[in-house]
Design a protein around this nucleic acid. Sequence first.
DNA 1: ATCACGCTGTGCAATATTTCACAACTCAAG
DNA 2: CTTGAGTTGTGAAATATTGCACAGCGTGAT
Lengths: 211, 211
Amino acid sequence: MTRKENRISEKTIERLSVYRRYLKDLNKKGKDRVYSHELSQIVSGTAAQVRRDLMEVGCNGCSSKGYEISLLIKEISKVLDCSKKENIALIGVGNLGRALLGYFSGARDNYDIVAAFDNDPAKYNRIICGRRCYSMEQLPNMIDELKISTAILAVPAESAEKEAQNLIDKGIKAILNFAPRHITTGSGVFIETLDMTSALEKAIYFSRKNT
Amino acid sequence: MTRKENRISEKTIERLSVYRRYLKDLNKKGKDRVYSHELSQIVSGTAAQVRRDLMEVGCNGCSSKGYEISLLIKEISKVLDCSKKENIALIGVGNLGRALLGYFSGARDNYDIVAAFDNDPAKYNRIICGRRCYSMEQLPNMIDELKISTAILAVPAESAEKEAQNLIDKGIKAILNFAPRHITTGSGVFIETLDMTSALEKAIYFSRKNT
DNA sequence: ATCACGCTGTGCAATATTTCACAACTCAAG
DNA sequence: CTTGAGTTGTGAAATATTGCACAGCGTGAT
Ligand SMILES: NC(=O)c1ccc[n+]([C@@H]2O[C@H](COP(=O)([O-])OP(=O)(O)OC[C@H]3O[C@@H](n4cnc5c(N)ncnc54)[C@H](O)[C@@H]3O)[C@@H](O)[C@H]2O)c1
Ligand SMILES: NC(=O)c1ccc[n+]([C@@H]2O[C@H](COP(=O)([O-])OP(=O)(O)OC[C@H]3O[C@@H](n4cnc5c(N)ncnc54)[C@H](O)[C@@H]3O)[C@@H](O)[C@H]2O)c1
């Protein structure tokens, strides 16, 4: 029994999130069982890959009848979710930040953007999309008070590294970064950068290269 | 000499885009040469990987002096860019769409969101972030007229598949999709889905699992 | 009861991607 | 000129990820 636990890969975690969202949809539509080949279509993979992913959450499938949807949702959630609702902080309430705030605050079961932060005094104490915008000075207190461990970073590229380091210093454990900057971290903090520009340039490239 | 050309991988294309952005920054700062190990830091890879990526664009490095930045930018651009400026369409001018429009229209060298489309009549003909919003009926004409081959899709999840198919039917060759839906396509159309929700859920998951 | 069918779980093969490691090269200093 | 430090280009190894294929099982039809 080494220290190296059964670690689920990043790719699998992403797919589990996608499966769950789809399963919740199916559930609402009244469906109660699903086959691996149905799930495979929504992630453009194979049925085998789906079954492998689902094995990671403690394999519930039954031959010939597929997987029970509500059970699957429960098992995936047991892996993805914390026991209590997760509090998220948004840093940078600009054009993108506001859209994210409107999208992610409230309405989700397992997490919620509970506070927004900006360094523009004009925004302090304003309520934006139902959430109050605080000054950066209030960040440490709020992190402690609300037990925030994950942050969304939507500040300009120039400030991204500085603010990321700031977040890490204050105890944040994961950052979803929208600034087009790679963020280096020695610590065990998880950083996911969603780089829309490179995604768009990739799309443009393949618009010419495919078929 | 088979039909199977020297195809550059998706991952490499993404990194080339990131390198180029960084190189342009360095260039502005007056730097004129760069080593592979410097570039490796901004993509959290190894120097060897960077050198491999750069070989794909026609290896320009010189031992002991590294790569010449302006040449590298030129060579990467030769791979990533089309000869003329690429015209992009935005479908869905909601909260996210407006942010994207503000961010991606104008100011870029090699591409530009030139037109926005929505199915909400209240938005028709309004100028948003400097770009006119058209009705969906005008899409085919604009695609032909402006030779648009890449589109950004920012419509609600329920409409995403339908509108994607619509785009494909009208001749679009690549789609950057922000709706949390997988889009299936038999044809050779390139589809990149940026799923912010699964990215956030991944971050939340690893906020607990790291270290 | 039996059989055929279709699905799951999984060992193993196949790919894809990354890293290692080193020969070859450049340059500056002595 | 020679040496040494430092870098590139790249074959080969190492990993990571995916796909194949089949045994085994549950189900419904006969
Ligand atoms: N808008 C988009 O669609 C889009 C697309 C791709 C990438 N991005 C990236 O997302 C980030 C945000 O983009 P945006 O369009 O919302 O920019 P924005 O300029 O509209 O908003 C930035 C916000 O961050 C605040 N801010 C600046 N420095 C700060 C700091 N040090 N601490 C806290 N807050 C700070 C500003 O006051 C402002 O409210 C940028 O890095 C941008 O490159 C945006
Ligand atoms: N806002 C965010 O930060 C965010 C984050 C993650 C994902 N998304 C996804 O991005 C997409 C857009 O999000 P949003 O917040 O901008 O939504 P939104 O409701 O603000 O905007 C949607 C826009 O699309 C238009 N529209 C609807 N159906 C259309 C159709 N068939 N053809 C053309 N236009 C149509 C609407 O009129 C509206 O203007 C959604 O799929 C959402 O799930 C958004």
